[in-house]
Design a binder for these strands. Structure first.
Length: 137
DNA sequence: TTTCTAACA
DNA sequence: TGTTAGTA
């Protein structure tokens, strides 16, 4: 019964304060990413957010992408669909998460390379922001 | 004390 | 994103 492990990883345990220390993200950022459905923490009876290990992992991935210069739109394309529903019986296995991560990492590289090489095409919105895109203005 | 939502001199 | 206000 190795499935018991997945249950623990998807179990909502820590409040936003602890997640802040674990990820070095501000509460503002953590809540902002939730608005964009990048993470879906459970809620307590008092409407307090409760995050699971997997939620923290996702936030760390998001933080990593942000640091690489990818904006919300880009992160959505790479990380979606979100593994949602912590209140229902939807449990994501570790393998599923790993495979998804591998694929998206490859896709990310393609996206970045593609956008950095080919200049701005009219009508297309850049998924890269900040310092990275400035080199190509 | 901590977290939540909403909003911006 | 930061930050503040007024609560729960």
């Amino acid at each position: 019964m190795a499935n018991n492990d997945e249950l623990r990883k998807n179990m909502a345990l820590f409040p936003i304060g602890i997640v802040m220390k674990l990820t070095d993200l501000t509460a503002r950022q953590i809540r902002y990413y939730e608005q964009h459905e990048l993470v879906k923490p459970a809620r307590t009876g008092g409407n307090q957010r409760l995050y699971s290990f997997i939620d923290v992992q996702r936030l760390l991935e998001i933080k990593d992408l942000i640091e690489k210069g990818v904006n919300i739109a880009g992160i959505k394309q790479v990380l979606l669909p979100v593994s949602g529903d912590s209140e229902e019986a939807t449990v994501i296995t570790e393998q599923t998460e790993m495979k998804r991560k591998e694929l998206t990492e490859t896709q990310l590289h393609k996206m970045l390379k593609q956008q950095l090489i080919s200049g701005k095409r009219p009508g297309q919105v850049s998924l890269i922001q900040g310092e990275l895109s400035r080199f190509f203005h």
